[in-house]
């Protein structure tokens, strides 16, 4: 009986959470409709690299379902810029280029640490925002990216071995 009651509570919570999720993503300070849409599309499965030279190449405006690797096996191009313990953590590297210079948003479905590395150094992010309630995306970091350059996106301190991620030019996602 107790188990049934618990199931009922969880079911009710799941239903109400779904209803809530419809507007949960509106709590971002920008309009994230483009990212929210991308997060509903079929993802491209990708295993992140353990070092920059072996990192898979991704493209903008596409949803990736990432497999991350134990962080101790990852050789980062630059040390993660946030000091954290790495016990049991996952991470990995991705490569990409953008055709047009300008602000781009990296969106991920969890609060994993992100660094954008260019020529061996982390780029300073321009802004960030998050929503605890929005299932996808949950965290967005904005970087001003140079055109044509090889960029390495580093993921660190992930608390699980999977994640979903998009990179989008800001122009594709208008401000609120």
């Amino acid at each position: 009986m107790k188990a049934l009651a618990r199931l009922a509570i969880l079911s009710a919570a799941a239903l109400s959470t779904t209803a809530f999720a419809a507007d949960a993503c509106s709590s971002f300070k920008w309009n994230v409709a483009h990212e929210v849409h991308l997060f509903t599309t079929p993802p491209t499965a990708t295993t992140a690299g353990t070092e920059a030279g072996k990192a898979p190449t991704i493209t903008t405006d596409r949803l990736y379902a990432l497999t991350l690797l134990p962080q101790e096996s990852v050789r980062y191009a630059a040390s993660p810029s946030k000091p954290m313990l790495a016990d049991g953590a996952y991470g990995g590297l991705l490569k990409f280029r953008v055709d047009k210079a300008g602000p781009h948003r990296v969106a991920i479905d969890d609060g994993f640490w992100l660094d954008m590395v260019h020529e061996g150094k982390p780029l300073q992010s321009v802004d960030f925002n998050g929503s605890r309630e929005c299932a996808g995306p949950r965290k967005i970091v904005v970087y001003d990216l140079p055109a044509g350059a090889e960029l390495t996106l580093q993921i660190a301190a992930a608390t699980r071995s999977t994640g979903r991620l998009t990179v989008t030019p800001v122009a594709a996602a208008p401000a609120r």
Partner: peptide, 19 residues
């Protein structure tokens, strides 16, 4: 500082007994 910044994980998570 490291602990302050670290995300804690579910009990029993592999290789994460400290956190």
């Amino acid at each position: 500082l490291l602990i302050f910044n670290t995300s804690w994980v579910i009990a029993g998570t592999s290789n994460a007994a400290r956190i």
